[in-house]
Structure formats: C-alpha cells, structure tokens
Design a protein around this nucleic acid. Structure first.
Length: 301
DNA sequence: GGCCAGGAGCTTA
DNA sequence: TAAGCTCATGGC
C-alpha cells in the first residue's frame, strides 16, 4: 500500500498526491465505466450516489470543492490510488512484445472499483451495443429512477445516482425499453428482481472463487461469460477475469496468433496461461490498444 | 442503406 | 459442438 498525502486547497478542494502511475482521463474514458463525463480538464462522475469532480494536475489529483472527507475517501478507493500500479505495468511490459507496446500507450490506465449492482446492469446493457449508447441508456435510467446525488459534493446538478435494485424491480419491461434499452430490457428487469429479492447477493460473490461467482452470474438471463467476466473484473476484484469481446478476440488472434481462428474458450485459456493473475489488467491494455490505436488494423480480422 | 457496436440465446445440422 | 439467425437502437 502507498502513503497518500491530502492537501486542502483554499477554495475547498482537496489535492491528493503520492500515488504512482495513474491517468485520470484514460481510466474514466476507456469504456469500463459509463457515468464519467469529461468537461475540459475535469472528469465529472456519479459514484456511490455522490457527484465527483476530479482533475489531474501532474502528480496531483484534485477533488473539486466542496470535497468532504467521504468524497476524498471515495476517490481513493474507486481509483485504487493507495495500490501500487507501476509494478503491475512493469510486469506486463516485461512479459511480451505486445504488452511492451500496449502498456506505454495507456500508461496509468487503472481498473476502477465499481459498485457490483450498477456494473451488472451496465454490462447487461452492453450486449451488442456501443460504449456511447450504453452510457446514454444508463444516464437515461438514472434520470428517470435515480435518487438525487447526496453528500458534500455540488448540489446544483441535474445528474442523479444509479437507481436501486428494488426500484428497477418494481418497473415494467416496457418502461426500461423506453430508455432505449432495446431487447436487453427483459434481462435488466429480471436481474433487478433477483437482486432485490435477495436471491442473488452480489457482495457475497466477492468472497467466493472466481469460478463460482461466474457460475452464479451466468444463471441470469442475458448474462454470458463475457458480461459475467466484466462484472467480476470491474466490480468484484477478480483481477484474473478476462472478458473476451469482439475487440479482445481480434487483438489476441491478430497480435498473438497471426490471425488464426480461435474460440473464445481458447482465448480465455491463453490469457489464463500467459497473463495469469494479471489477465484482467492485460485485457484492459489490449482493449484500449486495439480500439484506440490500431482499429483499422484489426477490423475485419 | 448496410454494417457494426465491450453478446447472448435459441435453432439447426 | 458449432455455425447461423435474431434481438433494438443509433452512428457512421
């Protein structure tokens, strides 16, 4: 763990320093979380019902005023600032030539600690969908059913928190569809009912093995291996999970196997064998590399 | 206007 | 078991 320093600023902001490799914009905009909006140099997001405005200035992370103790604590835990990240990046870069190229292009890209419930619904909405459209649907659902943001942060905002499972469980499928969720609306409603009834305890999955947690998640309608792995990786601290989507499939096949056809199961086995406990981090760098830096090379393969 | 998007489920062979 | 089709919706 890293010793962070917290420095109050005159205007009520708090500057956090002492963390190692971290890139705020890449982390917020890489498509792992869907409620961050970039406004100039500031990233504005809603996390755990609180509105956060965060800005990176070199080695400092500024939590914009009014930044109460809970807001600062939340920023640290959400971005995992107290955990060393440069050691993970070094280990990946030393692993192979692909990582040696991919990691420097997205240095400081972290895995954020999302809330499992919001993460589950967000990724159910991700099926055959674009990052932009997923964000729009999530925001729309928050507008309709989410409570106002609370806490020490700015109160003059139209943005709302992610709705509770009990609230979505009480909606009709057609209401979810009205938020442009499309055919995914049924899966959203059913997941909400399982979570609200206590039939599925997402926090409990944090304490089980990755295999058992994945098995529980794929029991849900509309949740297969890929979406389950996203929930495991982005919200349940299972860093060896390796979600295989279209971009990862292209990247692994093209960058590691000269374009040879592979099943998703084969790709996951390769990731487990090759990246081991760091598979989840490797996935994030590969995803960003494939999507942001060489899409024209990989598209069509 | 067809193709694609951080897929999954069902049918067919 | 694997390939093919379908599911809403919007951007390009």
């Amino acid at each position: 763990m890293i010793e962070l320093e917290f420095t109050p600023v005159d205007d009520g902001s708090v500057a956090i320093s002492g963390f190692d490799s971290f890139n705020l914009h890449d982390t917020c905009q890489c498509g792992q979380a869907f409620r961050w909006v970039r406004r100039g140099d500031v990233e504005e997001g809603v996390v755990a019902g609180r509105l956060l405005r965060v800005e990176q200035c070199g080695g400092e992370l500024l939590v914009h005023a009014p930044a109460g103790p809970e807001d600062v604590r939340l920023v640290v835990s959400y971005f995992r600032l107290a955990e060393s990240h440069s050691a993970i990046e070094s280990a990946l870069e030393a692993l192979d030539e692909v990582m040696a190229k991919a990691v420097p292009l997205s240095r400081g890209l972290r895995l954020v600690a999302q809330e499992p419930w919001e993460c589950l619904i967000s990724y159910i909405l991700s099926a055959n969908n674009s990052v932009q459209q997923i964000s729009r649907v999530v925001e729309s659902m928050c507008d309709v059913w989410g409570p106002p943001v609370t806490g020490d942060g700015p109160r003059f905002t139209a943005r709302r928190a992610f709705p509770a499972a009990a609230v979505l469980a009480a909606t009709e499928e057609c209401d979810i569809r009205s938020c442009k969720a499309g055919f995914r609306a049924r899966a959203v409603c059913e997941a909400a009912q399982h979570v609200a009834s206590g039939n599925l305890d997402l926090e409990e999955l944090r304490r089980t093995s990755v295999e058992e947690a994945r098995a529980r998640l794929v029991e849900l309608h509309g949740v297969g291996n890929k979406i389950a792995d996203c929930v495991l990786l982005f919200s349940l601290d299972k860093f060896d999970a390796f979600p295989v989507d279209v971009w990862i499939e292209r990247a692994v096949r093209h960058l590691y196997f000269a374009g040879a056809p592979m099943s998703h199961a084969q790709i996951r086995k390769f990731a487990a064998d090759h990246f081991g406990a760091l598979a989840g981090y490797a996935q994030e760098y590969l995803f960003n590399y494939a999507r942001m830096h060489i899409p024209e090379v990989l598209r069509g393969h």
